[in-house]
Design a protein around this nucleic acid. Structure first.
Lengths: 191, 191
DNA sequence: ACGCCTCCATACGGTGCCGTATGGTGAGGA
DNA sequence: TCCTCACCATACGGCACCGTATGGAGGCGT
């Protein structure tokens, strides 16, 4: 991490992004990132306007990477059901690498990046809803189930982080149950 | 909020609890609560050891109140399905009054109250799992579905707080869908 | 009325952060 | 070679917070 020489504007974003993914957006602090880079904030304020600009750059990179991941997950399988299954698996498997995202929705407004978070969220919801619609759910039911699926991911991250000793979460079985719940249609009316 | 006279140790917890429910545990700061009370931290450090003790007292009150609410929700209806339905409705209706809880799981470890959060979470999970078991799910499936239900609540709170303009969340319809998903058994194997 | 003892206001030192000001260093062009 | 300018280290003032030290202020018993 530490290096004495010259530093580019992008390297500042790199280091800040590393902090974001590992800890959270609130850990993107000018002086802390400077320590990570082995330099001082004198460099930072030459390359960037202020902390807000750095935070925004981090979020824009996050948005780009997230879009790539969504596309990658989409192109893995052909049928909607298999796609959704693969998506659930990928999301579960990458849970540990989304440490920063667990705090994101709570920091978004204060950090002034709620617009970016909203765009990413919309894309995620639309993507999942599209798959569910392909399974036969009507548009609105598909969107509701997609929202609930997103919420489950966010919520499980919190349950894992905030409880100690950890409540045992068997990710594989939970994912299986969540997938089944998502794709199982409601029983016929009047049952 | 402001009052000049003498202040008891409990009043400090009252004011801190108000901050917790409205904003979050991280807003429980000695000098800020002192301002709310119209006094200074000189009073605080006479009544309490340090900020950690105050935070812990707030969480213990939260634990007690949450236990009451769980019991109240339980005694509202007779059958498991109706109980679960009532519980979902109550949780959805009180969403706005749980502002502090949205940050709680993320602050728990740093604030040293993960044990209390874990206890409350366990009780919630066990309660919901018990109702689901009463509907015919086996113990482990019931626990998984209970965990997912908890996660949905936490996740939806974040989605609502972190997106702007807000993604429209129709709480009533979402609750209905979530309830249906929770109580609908998986389709028979080999379907 | 006098003193005591509970309770609190104020001042202080320490930490971590933001953003600015200012001076220095080194690499590349003239 | 030396000058210039991109780049950075340091120092500073400001803010919010924690916890301590210290000196009142006021009710209460005697």
């Amino acid at each position: 991490m530490a290096q004495g020489g010259r530093i580019t504007a992008e390297q500042w974003v790199d280091a800040a992004y590393a902090r974001f993914t590992k800890i959270g957006l609130d850990s993107v602090r000018v002086e802390a990132v400077a320590r990570d880079l082995g330099t001082t904030k004198g460099s930072f304020y030459w390359h960037h306007a202020d902390r807000g600009a750095l935070v925004r750059a981090v979020m824009e990179r996050w948005e780009a990477e997230e879009t790539e991941h969504i596309i990658a997950a989409a192109s893995a399988e052909a049928e909607p059901r298999a796609r959704l299954r693969a998506l659930f698996g990928t999301v579960a498997a990458r849970a540990g690498r989304r440490g920063g995202e667990s705090r994101l929705y709570l920091d978004a407004e204060r950090e002034g990046v709620a617009d970016i978070v909203t765009r990413v969220t919309r894309r995620r919801v639309d993507f999942v809803a599209g798959l569910l619609a392909g399974l036969g759910f009507d548009e609105e039911e598909a969107e509701r189930r997609a929202l609930l699926a997103l919420a489950v991911v966010l919520g499980l991250q919190q349950l894992e982080r905030g409880t100690r000793p950890h409540i045992p979460l068997d990710q594989a079985l939970l994912t299986e149950t969540a997938f089944t719940m998502a794709v199982t249609p409601p029983p016929a009316q009047g049952g």
